[in-house]
Design a protein around this nucleic acid. Structure first.
Lengths: 212, 212
DNA sequence: CCTTGGTGAGTGGTGACTCACTCAACGCCG
DNA sequence: CGGCGTTGAGTGAGTCACCACTCACCAAGG
């Protein structure tokens, strides 16, 4: 499975889109500026300057500033997450992991890499969520809708009578991932070794899955 | 140990402070508005209106809008967190928990309640962190500086040769707490039963601390 | 009558957005 | 081919609303 970076995926979708080079620069500039200073503290002058474009150009394609934000977030919501989830289902279906640990290792490292690659967009998204709670609901709903079916077959595969595997079993794993990912989201210039973190997570979580 | 709510602590500190009733209303209004709409999208007119005060009054005590934000965040940074940490150290020293589980139960539920009670301020703080990464460093540094000494005696007490207890042992616990707390921070109107969550966390984490 | 907390109309600056214009690219036709 | 209208991306000075902040004034209490 390819690493799915919104940054590169954005570039892809831009290449496919009918946006000119300058318009693409606008979006790239916005990603950088929004993620660093926040949407509200970024002026259209900032954007134009960083994109190497006049302010008028910004408004040739985007009706207003808000529409740029939507254009940045939309791929995340409408295309990237679903695409990734589908890919993931396909991958899990194909691979037929021969152990629970192997499956988990794939899932954990894959999802962490995804977040890592997309931390800038995720930052922008988080900023918005903190100001517009509706977004939270829709995001959660979609994450569930997409993720649960991806994980259910795995549950069925590896669940055993003495250790029933449920969605709740993923909570500790998810929590551990959060402890590694949150710092990187809050401070994007931090480094994170995904493989090492994955090892650590699996190490800490295996006693939990087989004990009790 | 008293529940430490920034909201009530804020009220306390306000009562102690030399702020008039109207000025206190300004701060309360700002907490509500900032946490809901964000700092940047809250106008001074909004603030005055909700506080039932004229715009001039807002500026009688606060030099500018930014200073109100600082006034809201300052107790969190300068007084609440340390006070709570100190209280916590005192409490742990006093109680001499007779089991690791009892100590953890106290720690987990106490900290979760703290976050829950202060979710509005924490929201405002998070918003700021996402726009000003310096804050992240200082917050992390302080949290460590205050929290590590509070927890070290516990480690010494309950660490056993066959199950050495380190700071890293807390990562899964912290992660699990995050899974319960994040939703409430992102959407403050959500409910959270701290006792139930605490039970759940301890249930999921005990095999981890004693196995391997 | 001074001090102190409060008022709200007013102001200056800023920032989102507009519009009249330029210019290069592209047919299209004599 | 070469002139020539059309198109549409790009420009940037200009506009206008809004918003943080001010200030001249007020009322009440010591």
């Amino acid at each position: 499975m390819q690493v799915n970076s919104v940054e590169t995926l954005l570039a892809n979708s831009l290449a496919k889109s009918d946006l000119s080079q300058k318009q693409q620069n606008v979006l790239k500039a916005c990603l950088k500026l929004f993620s660093e200073q926040g949407y509200d503290r970024t002026t259209t002058a900032d954007i134009a300057k960083l994109a190497g474009v006049s302010e008028g150009t910004v408004y040739k394609h985007f009706k207003n500033k808000r529409e740029i934000l939507d254009a940045l977030l939309e791929p995340l919501k409408a295309s990237v997450l679903p695409a990734v989830a589908d890919e993931f289902v396909a991958e899990t279906a194909k691979q037929h992991f021969d152990s629970l640990e192997a499956a988990l290792r794939f899932l954990v490292s894959d999802r962490m890499r995804f977040v890592l690659d997309n931390r800038l967009i995720i930052r922008v998204f988080l900023q918005e969520v903190l100001v517009n709670t509706d977004l939270f609901d829709s995001a959660l709903a979609m994450a569930k809708q997409r993720f649960v079916p991806a994980v259910l077959p795995m549950l069925a595969n590896f669940s055993q009578p003495q250790h029933p595997l449920t969605l709740e079993s993923f909570r500790p794993i998810f929590g551990l991932m959060l402890t590694y990912l949150l710092p990187v989201i809050l401070k994007p210039e931090l480094q994170l070794d995904v493989d090492q973190a994955t090892d650590q997570i699996l190490l800490e979580v295996t006693p939990l899955l087989f004990a009790k």
